[in-house]
């Protein structure tokens, strides 16, 4: 699926926000109704929510610096491309750690922690990073 850099960044951030929302809703439902089975009893899911919140907070802080770098970007006369990829450093490279944590936990909970599917996850994350890099390059220079 072909995606632009902005669309990709929005998608990754929305996945992170949805993860926080669905875990918080489940924990809140259990607390409000005094449920016997509580999602908060699962330490990995609680840790994922905390890590995702921290990652999004870092994303919010770093986005201000990226905004400044975008404003300071200069394009030489006669050239229609930027000189560096600095303005795009925040887009997906910052949020990729959050996405990796989010995808890893469902994979571990459904498929288990065995090494049988390990190559699948490793390959998928490598592919995702490669696609993100190609999308940034395409945004700067056109079709790679």
């Amino acid at each position: 699926m072909e995606k632009s850099t902005i669309t990709l960044t929005i998608s990754l951030v929305m996945v992170a926000l949805f993860t926080i929302a669905i875990i918080s809703f489940s924990v809140g439902f259990a607390n409000d109704n005094s449920a016997v089975i509580n999602i908060a009893d699962d330490p990995e899911l609680s840790a994922l929510s905390t890590e995702t919140t921290t990652g999004l907070s870092d994303f919010k802080d770093d986005s201000e610096g990226t905004y400044s770098s975008i404003l300071e970007t200069t394009i030489e006369p006669g050239s229609d491309v930027a000189q560096s990829t600095g303005p795009f450093a925040i887009t997906a490279g910052n949020i990729i750690g959050v996405t990796k944590n989010i995808i890893y936990l469902p994979y571990k909970k459904i498929f288990g922690s065995g090494s049988g599917f390990g190559i699948f996850f490793t390959t998928f994350m490598g592919f995702l990073v490669l696609i993100i890099g190609l999308l940034m390059y395409k945004t700067l220079r056109g079709n790679p």
């Binding site: 929305m14 996945v15 949805f18 993860t19 669905i22 875990i23 489940s26 999602i39 899911l45 989010i102 995808i103 936990l105 469902p106 909970k109 459904i110």
Partner: peptide, 8 residues
């Protein structure tokens, strides 16, 4: 919950 995250 994991299925929700994956489909999201």
């Amino acid at each position: 919950i994991s299925l929700n995250i994956l489909t999201a």
